[in-house]
Amino acid sequence: MFDLSINAFFMQLLTGLQIGSIYVLIALGLTLIFGTLGVVNFAHGALYLVAIYLAVSISDAFGFGLALVLVPAILFVLGLAMERGLIQYFYNRPHTDQILVTFGLAIVIQELLKWIFGANNVPFAIPQWGNGIIMMHEWFPFLEGFVVYPKWRMILVVVSIVTVAAVFALLHLTTFGLVIRAGMRDPEMLKFLGVNINRRFMIVFGLGAMIAGIAGVFGGPVTQVSPEVGMHLLVPSFLVVVIGGMGSLGGAVLAGILIGMAQSFTAHDINLSTIIVYLITVIVLLVRPRGLLGAKGVFE
């Protein structure tokens, strides 16, 4: 059943890109939080869950535009509250404690949302301007015949690229980013220099949650809105962080696309598609124990 025609190859390439885009958006927040705060945040999938439920509720009531503005903002505030109210007490605790508490929090959030919205899927209508399909054969003349792809999924890919670029710009072109990157390397030294790194890290946690908010607004119609979605995305997203290299934004992007492609190109065989993510993880960790772009000295 494996079809290697140019059309099939192109479709699977696009599909891999859009699957990878979701992973990248979620892994970006995860790796930011892990890279700066050293916190293994298993509640990050639940933040995505909160985002998609908020997005569908606000979008249904007031329109998609308001959801686009409000959801990332709400998630940013939620991230700050989470960091101040819970996460900060676990900075100096072992990773196992952090995993247990954030995993517990994720389950609480998941069951709470199920209690409020029910276990069934909540339909998330794509806004009118995002509906429809793109005639790919009109853009790519090498395609044979008729090849289409949903416009919304292409928008998701673009949003993912823009978000990644924005985060890179923030970290590499601003003073705030410079301090954060320095803090990732040597937080003690920054404290000696009189920089309140904890306050900035708190903002980074908020930013990570905000990216989950952006992912929720654009990813909700793709991943669907049901209580199990957060947990389903969490494991592959964590593997993306590990494969890419802990705390490496470039690594998260590379690994996200790699995993997306692997899932797309093995979809015809359930046995292969089930193990492919783990297979890649094992191979990468054997060859490059720090991950694809893991930096020496970060979390070692």
Binding site: D3, A8, M11, I19, V148, V222, V229, H232, A267, S273
Partner: peptide, 15 residues
């Protein structure tokens, strides 16, 4: 537990 079926639907569209 699949929530996004795009990789499978791409195969159907190719058939």
């Amino acid at each position: 537990k699949t929530t996004d079926f795009s990789q499978y639907l791409a195969q159907v569209m190719n058939s």
